[in-house]
Deep mutational scan, measured.
Amino acid sequence: MMAYMNPGPHYSVNALALSGPSVDLMHQAVPYPSAPRKQRRERTTFTRSQLEELEALFAKTQYPDVYAREEVALKINLPESRVQVWFKNRRAKCRQQRQQQKQQQQPPGGQAKARPAKRKAGTSPRPSTDVCPDPLGISDSYSPPLPGPSGSPTTAVATVSIWSPASESPLPEAQRAGLVASGPSLTSAPYAMTYAPASAFCSSPSAYGSPSSYFSGLDPYLSPMVPQLGGPALSPLSGPSVGPSLAQSPTSLSGQSYGAYSPVDSLEFKDPTGTWKFTYNPMDPLDYKDQSAWKFQIL
């Protein structure tokens, strides 16, 4: 009977010793046993002879290597770790002494450095960015050149030099007046198309007034536009458009034309069986010896 009264063996659950049927240790109110408190290391007290050895090595170098620390530790009968900690504390003490010396050398008012006064946003004049500046400075420094007289040679050079070769001289006033084509001369031969040399188009003023001019072949195509416009036809070669000034309004060009419109200028042929003959000019830059190549039959 006494065997049943004795408590059973101890069981360990999660490293906790349980005594038989008792489960009081598993209750929430019972805390787990805490780790033992780490003991504080005792402070090391250095003797005068030990301090002399350490100070002598510190005077040589503030960062001794492990071999120098072990050698000193053997002399003063201390572990190497204590020597390492002593050098660490000695360097910190040396830095603190240097900072105190710097503070003593500075004057009393030198510690508080005078800061520059901050400028207020409204006091300083700042350039306004509302208006974009002129990058080319046209509004201040540029002045347009004065327009020359209508009959000045410089204007003629600016007008005619675009179309004339570089080897030719500017046309005088008398020749510029001949550039304007007359109405009857352009409409006299509506079906004849003559190819003149390129030099005649640039230099010869008579080429624009003769039936064999460069633009005589364009007349049949330009004249039928007159009834559609409801007024006189516009002429690209009329009046002052080739003269001194090219800047004319469309209203000033509306009254200039080749001449009176005639039914002869239409595109319809009077004789459907007729042929169109292209007159060959020996001055043509295209060297075609066979003139029969310039004739064709309209079917």
Rank of each mutant, 00 (worst) to 15 (best):
Y142F: 05
Y221L: 06
C132D: 07
P224K: 09
A121N: 08
P244S: 04
A293R: 12
S169W: 12
Q50T: 13
H27C: 12
L286R: 12
Y11Q: 00
S143Y: 02
S252K: 13
A260V: 09
T251A: 08
N89Q: 13
K88C: 13
L186G: 01
Y63P: 14
G274M: 07
A200D: 00
K38L: 11
Q105T: 03
P250S: 08
T187H: 10
E173Q: 09
S167K: 06
S169C: 03
L186C: 01
G274Y: 12
N281D: 01
F269P: 00
P285I: 12
Q104D: 05
A260M: 09
E70H: 09
T273W: 12
E168Y: 11
S204G: 08
Y4P: 00
Q101V: 09
Q84S: 06
Y142L: 09
F278W: 00
Q105P: 03
D271E: 04
M283Y: 08
P125R: 12
T154A: 03
Q28F: 15
T45A: 04
R126L: 07
G230P: 04
L229Y: 05
A174Y: 08
L74A: 09
P144S: 02
Q105R: 11
A59S: 09
P7F: 14
G122A: 03
K38D: 15
R48Q: 05
N77T: 10
Y63T: 13
P282W: 13
S143A: 04
C202Y: 09
L78P: 14
L74F: 10
L171R: 12
R48T: 09
A181H: 03
A56D: 05
L54G: 15
T194H: 08
S216F: 10
Y214S: 01
Q39E: 08
T154G: 03
W86V: 13
V85Y: 12
P135C: 13
R119N: 03
Y261I: 06
S164K: 06
M2T: 00
Q62A: 08
C94P: 15
Q101N: 08
F269C: 00
Q97G: 09
S128I: 08
S164Q: 01
E42F: 07
R69E: 14
T123R: 11
K277M: 07
P211G: 04
V23W: 08
N14S: 08
Q105C: 10
G109H: 08
W276E: 00
K75P: 14
H27P: 02
V83F: 15
P33Q: 03
A196W: 13
S164Y: 12
K289I: 04
G209F: 13
Q97W: 07
W276I: 04
H27K: 07
S139M: 05
E52Q: 05
W163S: 01
P250V: 10
S252L: 10
E52P: 15
L171F: 10
K60P: 14
L74Y: 05
A260H: 07
S235M: 10
W86E: 15
K93T: 14
F296G: 00
P116Y: 03
A121L: 07
S254N: 06
P232G: 03
Y32C: 05
A181K: 10
Q101Y: 06
Q297L: 15
G183W: 12
P149N: 06
V131Q: 05
T273G: 01
Y221I: 07
Y221K: 05
S12H: 06
D219M: 12
Q62N: 03
A121Y: 06
A59G: 03
F58P: 14
P224S: 13
A174H: 04
K88V: 13
S185W: 15
W163T: 00
S19Q: 04
F278Q: 00
T194K: 06
M283Q: 03
S188I: 13
R90A: 12
I76V: 10
R41S: 15
P135N: 07
G243C: 08
M26I: 11
T155G: 04
P244G: 05
S223E: 01
Q39L: 10
G183Q: 03
G231I: 13
F269V: 02
T61H: 06
Q99S: 09
P205G: 10
Y195D: 00
A196V: 15
S257D: 03
Q62F: 04
K295V: 15
G183F: 13
Q291N: 03
P127T: 06
P211F: 12
N6W: 15
L179A: 04
A166N: 01
P224V: 15
T61M: 09
R69Y: 12
Q256A: 10
N6C: 14
S252H: 06
K270W: 14
P9S: 02
S199G: 10
S188Q: 02
M2C: 00
L286S: 06
Q105M: 05
A3V: 13
G255H: 09
Y142T: 08
E55L: 08
E55A: 13
S210W: 15
A3M: 11
A196L: 11
R82T: 12
P64G: 13
S292N: 00
L179F: 07
P211E: 00
A35S: 07
S124I: 09
Y11C: 00
P127N: 12
T251C: 08
R95N: 13
A68Q: 09
E268D: 02
P170Y: 05
D287A: 14
Q105D: 03
S164L: 14
F278S: 00
L74H: 07
V66Q: 12
P33V: 10
P133M: 06
L186T: 00
L146A: 03
P135Y: 06
M5Y: 09
K102A: 06
A174C: 07
N14Q: 11
K270D: 05
I76G: 14
